[in-house]
Simulated assay, not measured.
Amino acid sequence: MGRPVTLFTGQWADIPLAELAPLAKKMGFDGLELACWGDHMEVDKAARSKKYCREKRELLKDHGLECYAISHHLAGQLVCDLNNDGRSDMFAPAELAGDPEGQRKWAVKTMKNTAKAAANMGVEVVNGFTGSSIWHMLYSFPPASEKMIEDGFKYFAKMWNPILDVFDKQGVRFALEVHPTEIAFDIITARRALEAIGHREAFGFNFDPSHLIWQGVDPVRFLKAFPDRIYHVHMKDAAVTLDGESGILGSHLNFGTPGRGWDFRSVGRGDVNFEDIIRTLNAQDYKGPLSIEWEDAAMDRVAGGTESCAFTKKVDFEKSDRVFDEAFDS
């Protein structure tokens, strides 16, 4: 058998977990990667109550599902972001609206609790975002000095090292989904982020090829650059759709809008070469789940999720235990 195929519930958080679990099983999934919003995983409760976590696992087990990771992208984003406009208010408690440092304090505490929640759930990986205090300097105009960029990586280390101390204590690893708006969004910045935190083992990556492919970054090259830091894998696709009018930056057009220079696609319908990814994961002996993060604004999500699950199970295969001609020696 290949690796377990799971569904990341972030884009399904509007559906109560008791309803989503049987639906996911019907779509063909082996497990769920629980998002820490909606009612799927209440972090503070999970951090203090093993009973709550046991009930979550029993709910999944009742439908033939497992859990290998939980994810808290929303709180993680606020740890390093500037939190200086209304977008951050969507991710934090309502009473902290308009309070950048209050939101940051809440986010740090919440991410520490997410490590404890993961330990109580019996999983070893938390996926998420880090945020970035320097993403807005990407274009380097107005000019951004090297010191300003270096200070951003130092700030990331200052904010995340205490969080990672809790992850170490709980025996859990944090997997950053390398992604625009994060401290690491390509291979070069991923290396720099690792250097900033002294390559500590608690910090690695949730590999998601969709966020690399549209930037022109080779997903397989990313895997080969960090063979010991791939803590989790998202199966997600994207397609570049440049038409000579829009640009690769998205043109302020929302996902799914005709004319965007790129967009997410259902797994197997975009530009990602998943065959090469599976072969590389096999060579690196990755044994974790393949978790589908489904986003395709042009498709029905149940149909797309079902199709993506079947595609992933078909494209995945086990690593060989021999070279072909060695069979002649037996």
Rank of each mutant, 00 (worst) to 15 (best):
G10L: 05
G10E: 08
G10A: 06
Q11E: 07
W12I: 03
K25V: 03
K25H: 14
K25G: 13
K26P: 02
G28Q: 03
L34W: 15
L34A: 10
C36W: 03
W37V: 12
H40W: 06
H40L: 03
V43A: 07
D44A: 13
K45E: 08
A46C: 01
A47F: 03
K50Q: 02
K51G: 09
L60V: 09
K61Y: 01
K61C: 08
D62T: 06
H63V: 05
G64C: 06
G64A: 06
L65A: 00
E66K: 08
A69Q: 09
L74G: 10
A75C: 09
D81F: 01
D81N: 11
D81A: 11
L82E: 15
D85T: 10
R87M: 06
S88M: 03
D89S: 11
M90K: 13
F91D: 11
A92H: 04
P93Q: 12
E101P: 05
K105Q: 02
K105G: 05
K109W: 07
N113S: 13
A119L: 09
M121P: 14
M121I: 15
V123H: 08
V126F: 00
V126G: 08
W135E: 10
W135V: 06
H136Q: 13
A144E: 13
S145I: 09
E146D: 15
K147D: 15
K147P: 11
K158S: 14
K158M: 11
N161P: 11
N161T: 15
L164H: 02
D165L: 03
F167N: 04
D168S: 12
D168L: 09
K169P: 01
V172H: 07
F174W: 07
F174M: 04
L176Q: 03
E177Q: 01
H179C: 09
I183G: 08
D186A: 05
D186I: 07
R191N: 13
A193K: 14
E195V: 06
A196V: 02
I197E: 10
F205T: 13
I213K: 06
Q215H: 05
G216T: 05
G216F: 03
G216I: 03
V217T: 09
D218V: 00
P219Q: 08
F222K: 11
L223R: 10
L223H: 12
K224A: 11
P227R: 12
P227G: 05
I230R: 06
V233A: 07
H234A: 07
H234D: 04
M235G: 05
K236N: 13
V240T: 08
V240L: 06
L242Y: 01
D243S: 01
I248V: 07
L249F: 15
G250F: 15
G250K: 08
T257W: 02
P258Y: 01
G259R: 10
W262N: 04
W262V: 02
R265K: 15
G268W: 09
G268T: 00
R269P: 04
R269G: 00
G270W: 02
G270K: 02
V272L: 00
V272W: 02
F274G: 03
I278L: 11
L281K: 12
K287L: 07
K287P: 00
L290A: 01
S291T: 07
S291M: 02
D300K: 12
R301G: 04
G304I: 00
S308A: 10
C309N: 10
A310K: 01
K313A: 11
V315C: 12
D316L: 04
S320W: 15
S320H: 15
D321R: 11
D325S: 08
E326F: 05
D329I: 06
